[in-house]
Design a protein around this nucleic acid. Structure first.
Lengths: 136, 136
DNA sequence: AAAATAAAAGATATTAAGGTGTTTTATTAT
DNA sequence: ATAATAAAACACCTTAATATCTTTTATTTT
């Protein structure tokens, strides 16, 4: 998402082969994920020559929180640190209270991070998305 | 570990059937895990009648951090929030800086939590380990 | 010593995640 | 219209995690 957001901000569609190259990840695997994200409304796609994937201005405002919830549901938001099904405020596991502020911090971080927030830093190589050690 | 620590603190071995019942988890699966934890030195076991698993006084001082590192290695401690192999201080992913204090909090929590810390609370049903909704 | 108990060990089964390949459909440029 | 392009869809494969079952070994009690 970060990669497509940054590259499509130049006003073009990012070809599906470009993404796995940029991330050093398997082509078809990434394709599946991009198609899924398109269906869920986080990406825009176009078929045919010069087609590919893009993140619109509106889609740039989606947060990591939106993404995580759409893909994984509210697991991250609600689930117990120890994996217990019925851990809750009234029925806490031993680390429930300790984990509460941490969960909050994670959710805040996800909610504060928008898909389009780092286009500049990525363009200027201040932030990175690939396994740099593998770059020749 | 919490359950065995609490129940064995009464000075007996906790039978392998007692653990999955207490946690409402599959018997053989739990057995495998307990055996693994025994091999790793986090539990003490005894065969034969009145045998089972126990946490010694020394073993009670092991932390969740020790456990996590022993079982999963340093993944939790070092790995990137986005799953990038080469994300680091000098080569940060977009959320590297935001995630850093969160990772620190998690590690602190794990390091501050000892296996024997909650025996009293568990005995007094202030903290719980099972899916209470399933209890008849 | 024999029987009962209970963990250890090993083999096998199931499920979900991750990954790959081929075919189909839609779009654009010639 | 036709060819080229590129995503969508479908079928399949591989691996790791989760789970189950059976046999073996060690210990204790009678």
């Amino acid at each position: 998402m970060f990669l497509v957001a940054q590259r499509s901000s130049e006003g073009r569609y990012v070809g599906i082969k470009e993404v796995p190259e940029g991330l050093e990840a398997p082509h078809h695997f990434i394709a599946k994920i991009l198609q899924d994200l398109t269906k869920r409304g986080f990406l825009t796609s176009a078929k045919g020559p010069h087609g590919g994937f893009a993140v619109t201005e509106e889609q740039k405002t989606a947060t990591l929180f939106d993404l995580v919830v759409a893909v994984d549901g509210n697991k991250l938001i609600t689930s117990c640190c120890l994996g217990l099904k019925d851990c809750s405020e009234t029925n806490p596991c031993p680390v429930h209270k300790e984990y509460k502020p941490i969960r909050k911090k994670i959710n805040q971080m996800l909610d504060n991070t928008k898909i389009g927030d780092y286009n500049n830093e990525l363009a200027q190589s201040i932030f990175f998305l690939k396994d740099i050690s593998k770059v020749k």
